[in-house]
């Protein structure tokens, strides 16, 4: 723990990103307690208002407080990002482990399947799935997660190929350890580091995907607030109130920037060959 704190102190961008994300999580959880207004409370006499002491970031086209909606949108946005990444991990990690460890024809077959899935642009497949399952955030993000899974599987496979050559893996095999035990207790923990980095980076991609899907009206459905959906409303009033688009857009930008910065810092920290640079 002290080592981690020392690492943070010598990496200001990573520390700042972590601080931002922790603050965002706290705000997301505490939104019902600390948000100044209800996210759905309309005030038709005060629509598209500019920032003021009553409404820090103004009000939207229905007179709802933008700052409160931004806070209530945070948990929905984060839920969507984590859902996609968790789906990607649950599908991708075991497949990558098996392909890498077993090798041979199974590996060939799995690799072809991964190639096929990797060829789908994530958003396009997600739109296809929401079109079939019906619009909704959960459906769309599960589809995004399915598109993530081959990336994680490939990474896991490549690492497993390296780790399974290690002498200690031979040793536990000679001791008669079962296949699941070898893979789960000895191969995976030593091959998972690059996957952790990739997961952090994918959170940013998932966040942008959620924003895109909700912007297109295929994700979050009104009146639920999400940053992408807020941008979709702002789009309709772009000519008369262009300032409506700044707060949600910046929220998306800063959050995805924080995930990316943290991921890159982790990559450098975990990669022994890059340490000296």
């Amino acid at each position: 723990m002290t080592g981690f704190l020392r690492w943070l102190r010598s990496h200001p961008p990573a520390a700042l990103s972590l601080l931002f994300l922790v603050t965002l999580f706290v705000l997301a959880i505490m939104a019902p307690v600390i948000a100044p207004y209800s996210p759905t409370k309309q005030d038709v006499n005060n629509t598209l208002a500019e920032a003021s002491w009553q409404h820090w970031l103004g009000t939207d086209d229905l007179g709802r407080d933008v700052f409160s909606r931004l806070m209530y949108g945070a948990p929905i946005t984060l839920y969507a990002s984590f859902l996609a990444v968790i789906v990607g991990c649950v599908l991708g990690i075991p497949v990558g482990l098996l392909a890498g460890y077993l090798g041979g024809r199974i590996d060939d077959a799995i690799s072809r399947a991964l190639d096929a899935l990797l060829s789908f642009p994530a958003i396009v497949l997600a739109i296809g799935v929401t079109g079939a399952l019906g619009v909704g955030l959960t459906n769309g993000m599960i589809a995004v997660g399915i598109v993530f899974s081959p990336q994680l599987a490939r990474l896991m496979r490549a690492q497993t190929l390296v780790v399974k050559q290690e002498l200690y893996v031979d040793a536990v095999r000679c001791f008669g350890a079962s296949l699941p035990r070898i893979i789960l207790k000895h191969v995976m923990p030593n091959a998972i580091q690059p996957v952790i980095v990739q997961v952090t980076l994918l959170l940013a991609v998932a966040l942008l995907s959620e924003a895109s899907l909700s912007f297109l009206g295929l994700g979050v459905q009104p009146p639920q607030p999400s940053w992408g959906a807020m941008l979709a409303r702002a789009y309709n009033y772009m000519e008369i109130a262009p300032e409506q688009m700044y707060a949600p857009g910046l929220a998306i930008l800063f959050t995805s920037l924080a995930f990316n910065t943290l991921g890159e810092a982790l990559r450098v920290a975990l990669d022994p060959t890059r340490k000296r640079r």
């Binding site: 940013a204 942008l208 924003a211 895109s212 912007f215 992408g228 941008l231 702002a234 789009y235 772009m238 000519e239 262009p242 688009m245 857009g249 998306i252 930008l253 995805s256 920037l257 990316n260 910065t261 890159e264």
Partner: peptide, 22 residues
């Protein structure tokens, strides 16, 4: 470059429309 990766492209599109078109 890090900003460019994190930027939602449709948001940038909206800013471009608001500025250069409208």
């Amino acid at each position: 470059a890090s900003l460019g990766v994190a930027l939602p492209n449709f948001w940038l599109a909206m800013i471009l429309v608001a500025t250069f078109a409208l």
